[in-house]
Design a protein around this nucleic acid. Sequence first.
DNA 1: CTATGGACCTGAATGC
DNA 2: TGCATTCAGGTCCATA
Length: 271
Amino acid sequence: MPELPEVEVTRLSFAHRIAGARILSVHTGKPLRWPIGADAGALPGMSVVAVRRRGKYLLLDLSEGWLLLIHLGMSGSLLFAASMPPAGAHDHFDLVTTEGTLRLHDPRRFGAVVLSPGETSDVAVKLLGRLGVEPLGEGFGLAAFHAGLKRRDSPIKQVLLAGEVVVGVGNIYASEALFRAGIRPTTRASRISARRAERLWSAIRDVLARAVERGGSTLRDFSSAQGQAGHFQLEAMVYARAGEPCRQCGSPIRVLRQGQRSTFYCRVCQT
DNA sequence: CTATGGACCTGAATGC
DNA sequence: TGCATTCAGGTCCATA
């Protein structure tokens, strides 16, 4: 469910409220994608210093350099509130703090909560080590982006999804960014010209930044940790619009499968 | 090394 | 109504 904009909207919705909180207890439900780790018993007593984001991961900086990694998978969402109702069947993690409870709700359980002693532990390196550059940060340079594409022979859509060149672009925003850049999703990444790489580079930043402003996309059940739905889906140009007229040229939006994921595009506007 | 398909899991929508 | 199939915002891992 969550791509970079949804994760960032989630982060913004509770980071300031949880900062400085002391952890009182932890409650877990069914197993998530990875075990939380053997040190989880040490969480009570630690405090939450800050909440950062890396790609689609939320990183809770805890006391003494500990790091709590949270990933929302496909169907996860967080809620942070002073008073929390009893855990339901799909609530699999509660972090009870002096400022409120942070709860992970995740029906499919592709998400994860992992405690790591810093960013250089084996588990942190396994999860974060291969991530590409942050698209909304200063480090997202055009030259390096184009060079990264040059090294990949897969279709551009799948290169974006893989997150090894640039992070945070998931299935919705990959289709949206490629539409805005006028590039066919099947184009081999290595064959994208400098001029088109530049269009894609700015399309990625524009679409992600715009989606953050709009509170993310709520297709089925996404909401911020304050329970707010997003609205970006209302301005999607192609995603989930198969058969509907292109907002730019009127021809029907096409859908195809790439790596078991749906891709939406306009045959006329994207070449 | 890169590229691809399968796996993980649940619920909603669709089809017969 | 009932049951099977398909699809859904991610990404690690095994296999070529």
